[in-house]
Design a protein around this nucleic acid. Sequence first.
DNA 1: TTAATAGTGTCTATCAGACATTATTTG
DNA 2: CAAATAATGTCTGATAGACACTATTAA
Lengths: 224, 224
Amino acid sequence: MSSEHTHYPMPYVRVDLCVFTLMQGVLSVLLIQRQEPPHRGAWALPGGALRIDIEKTLEDAAKRVARERLQVPIPYLREQGFVGGQGHYESGKWAISIVYRALVRSEYFAPEPGKRVAGTQWIPVEEAIADEHLPFGHTGVIEAAAAALRQEVEALDFPFEILDSEFTLGELQHQSEVLLGTKLDKSSFRRRLAARDHLEPTGTMTQGSASRPAQLYRVKKRTT
Amino acid sequence: MSSEHTHYPMPYVRVDLCVFTLMQGVLSVLLIQRQEPPHRGAWALPGGALRIDIEKTLEDAAKRVARERLQVPIPYLREQGFVGGQGHYESGKWAISIVYRALVRSEYFAPEPGKRVAGTQWIPVEEAIADEHLPFGHTGVIEAAAAALRQEVEALDFPFEILDSEFTLGELQHQSEVLLGTKLDKSSFRRRLAARDHLEPTGTMTQGSASRPAQLYRVKKRTT
DNA sequence: TTAATAGTGTCTATCAGACATTATTTG
DNA sequence: CAAATAATGTCTGATAGACACTATTAA
């Protein structure tokens, strides 16, 4: 009896990135303009073929995709999910997309069109979701990824990666507000944060801020 | 310039199932004993190669895997996630597992060893998670899937699929308690349920129960 | 009657949001 | 001084859990 995995044809496997940032106070997602078919000229999530000949993990692949397509290194990668099926990428052909999610600081993450990319663009998530024309089912992917991100922020299971290593609670609150798209109450926000017990004061304060100095905090080292 | 997806070697792609049920009041997961290498003889999640030659979607693949390996049809499939990398399935080789989660009623879901399966077994989730010897990283997969399932139940975003089409609130609460592994307060459970507004009374009551008859409920049709 | 479960009401602790107040800096 | 933000306190409304109580059936 033949082994179960002998010589079945395998699908085309891609790794796609859903990279979010805050642009002018709005949660935005990074799209690239495709330089190659299918959907040449269209805007879509950055992604690329999985290269099992040169990498060992899916996360490696996601990082390489960022380097190649966007010419920047990428932190904060989280597994988002998968989509696929026959005709997912090219008509009639089988393809699977493995999707990773990221959140970056736009000051430090300046994507430049790389290999097979004609252009890059941050577009507000709400616009992206409203745009039914995104290829490869990316509209749905972005919607799901943004929901997952916002749920993290609401639970204060926060991607602290996008702040400096030391930050004030005011800065943290502001980031959260922009990510969620709503105002938060200061008192309540701090109470909830304290309950999570993930932060600790550094002992030093901000200086020269034209207002009262604020305590700086850092993320506690995990005792996992 | 060559197209981005020409002739890269692709990984072996599997679809694995994390099927849960309630056995004797304990949340349990279905394992199969492998009849083929790798890990011949070991117990692991049921799964199989993606067959792009005979199916069109990943969900189709998951359903076929259930038919072939377990000889039963499967309802309630949810996307769970992915794992993979070099050596994930066979030493040195690249493989990806697409994982679907399911919850079934053990009275109606009687798996029988199918193709390449030496045996099937329900084992309590806590035991499975404690067992570090499960191959293919399935320990972690089961842990994540059970957490996702329990989160659904806690939020009363409930897999009503595992109940009869008409059921009492007592039955529903009992199912939830077993899934979560904790007792719930009746009054509070009903209040939260009412707030969700997902159920409606059928108008008829249970009969012959040696205790007070209970109102039967059904799931409201979604107005999505 | 008792046993069993259904169904509901009440009390309380918790917690998040609203809002006020005081503190501390620069200009 | 005013303007700005930090930091904290207080009140209130919503909600979940604990618990009690009544209701309705079979045996």
